[in-house]
Computed example of a mutant assay.
Amino acid sequence: MPKLLVKPKAGHGRVLTVTPDSAGWGYVGFEIQKLAPGQIAEAATGDREVCLVLVSGKAAIAGDDFDFGIVGERMSPFEGKPHSVYVPAGADWKVQAATEVTLAVCSAPGTGGARAARYIGPDAVSQEVRGKGTNTRYVTNILPESEPADSLLVVEVITPGGHTSSYPPHKHDRDALPAESLLEETYYHRLNPPQGFAFQRVYTDDRSLDEAMVVEDGDVTLVPKGYHPCAAIHGYDLYYLNVMAGPKRTWKFYNAPEHEWLLKA
């Protein structure tokens, strides 16, 4: 089993990369590009679809048959809704930074076909509050299953300091619809203030996988299977960007039975 905690490199350019090969799975890819003003990131999607998420900063985003101009608004992932662009398989994309930019490149298998690139602005994303008490967190649906794509599901979550998230523990590692879907998942973590830390545990019922991790600003955690709750410590808010994909594009999860009573408390 590959290590589940991936640390970023310092500097600009591609500072973090997760591929299906490096993760030991079949679907999800994820990378972070740190761009200085004027710097460019570009690629061809090939046989994968891509969701470009401006975690922070402003940038011009274009491709062979689309040009969305300069998009982006927030300078921190804790400051508002994201600006994103969906790019289908078989297309090229280019991002040129207008400010300092943190760009997330989320990918999964795609078929291309008739799908077109599209801009996903703040008005196009839905937000919701999940949980209650110290399990409250704030969710922004960037690419939910109600919006067109081949494989990708993309969502970001802010968990206030002292709160839990992805909790009660749930999993989605069986292709057993309608009860549960099989989805790999990455978590890209950010902390506010950035010197903070949080915790995440990834574990299975039989504990053949049971890994508890301290996550710091910029870390990525991998969830190949099992339950995966998070905890934000007092004084430090936790942001994470989730990318999910699997054989069927639907999110059906299974709660750990021993903790399900918390939903009724």
Rank of each mutant, 00 (worst) to 15 (best):
D65Y: 02
V157I: 04
G112H: 07
E79T: 05
T102Q: 15
V139T: 06
P160C: 09
S84E: 08
Y167E: 01
G69W: 08
G110T: 07
S126M: 06
A60G: 09
T134G: 08
S181M: 05
E73S: 09
E100W: 01
G80V: 01
E185D: 02
C106Q: 05
I142G: 02
R130Q: 10
A59F: 01
R115G: 04
E128F: 01
G112F: 02
A59W: 01
V125K: 15
P169T: 10
T140D: 10
G90V: 03
P168T: 12
Q127Y: 04
G72D: 03
H83W: 14
L183A: 12
N141P: 04
G90D: 13
F66D: 15
D173C: 03
E73W: 07
V125G: 12
T134Y: 12
T140C: 11
S146E: 15
E156I: 04
D150G: 04
L152H: 10
P77E: 09
N141W: 10
D150L: 03
S126W: 06
L177N: 04
E100H: 08
V155C: 08
L182E: 04
G69H: 11
Y167D: 05
V87H: 13
A124D: 14
P77Y: 05
A60D: 12
A179N: 11
Y86T: 07
V71Q: 12
V105K: 15
P122T: 07
F78L: 03
S151F: 07
S151Q: 11
A91S: 11
V129D: 07
E156C: 11
V85H: 07
Y167V: 02
T102S: 15
G112N: 08
M75L: 13
L143I: 00
R137L: 02
Q96K: 14
